[in-house]
Amino acid sequence: MTAFWLLAPIMVVAALGVVLSRKAVHSALCLAVVMISLAMMYAMQDAPFLFAVQIIVYTGAIMMLFLFVLMLVGVDKTDSLVETIKGQRLVAIVLGLLFGGVLVTVVAQAFVGPVVGLGEANADGNVHGLAKLLFNRYVFAFEATSALLITAVLGAMVLAHRERLEPRRTQRDLALERMQRYAEHGEHPGNLPTPGVYARHNAVDVPALLPDGSTSEISTSKTLRDRGVVRDGAFAGDVSVTMRRLEADGPERGRVEPPPSTPARHDGEEDL
């Protein structure tokens, strides 16, 4: 019973966290805590197989897939509070209260005392006892459940399936296409230059420098260029500052012609 009184508050707090936390990922985490605590409750009640399976299947696989989707879909979004079905919230509150009332009544009527009959049920070992029940007495229910699950899996596959209209383009096809474009339009077949090459910073908004010191436009993202937040080559300015300093020091020392600031020149001006 001590384990119950230790785990129960954690579970209640985590369950409230599922409902109340603002971020979907935090809700999912709280749910994982509830599931793990539940598994420990099973272990306390001499059901080690259920304990392991609860964690492997629910916490390890299903919850992980939830988390997976949540992370990829809405990393930072809080849910919109607009009702899509009219009166949904009201119905949900009423039904929730009714369900809660039923649950409280039923649980309150239950007799709480020491658990009996576990030794008898686990006489041949927990796993063997469970297997005996599943594959003898409840074999029909077990098979029916598995048939239902397989149907659901097939349904999901059918729904997610999309007929392919054209043959899949392999890596070879793509490479050939790229070379064809190079042969016909002179489009650069390789990767775009990365930002910051030979420039003073390697941040994404600093364009790479070409050998003549001018900047390469295509080395920065189009989004940044459109927003106008691309910093200038960050070199021309430095050069002029250095030149001024040198000139201030004296005209004789190490005079270098500044590179002509020609506009960016590159094959394949458009984005690939």
Binding site: L29, I56, G60
Partner: peptide, 25 residues
């Protein structure tokens, strides 16, 4: 040791995945 020791190892390693996923997120 327990009757489901190997399943227990699988279970705790599957919790370990959470650390990696959450760290990434």
């Amino acid at each position: 040791d327990m009757p489901v020791a190997v399943l227990y190892i699988l279970a705790v390693t599957s919790i370990g995945v959470y650390g990696i996923v959450l760290g990434g997120w």
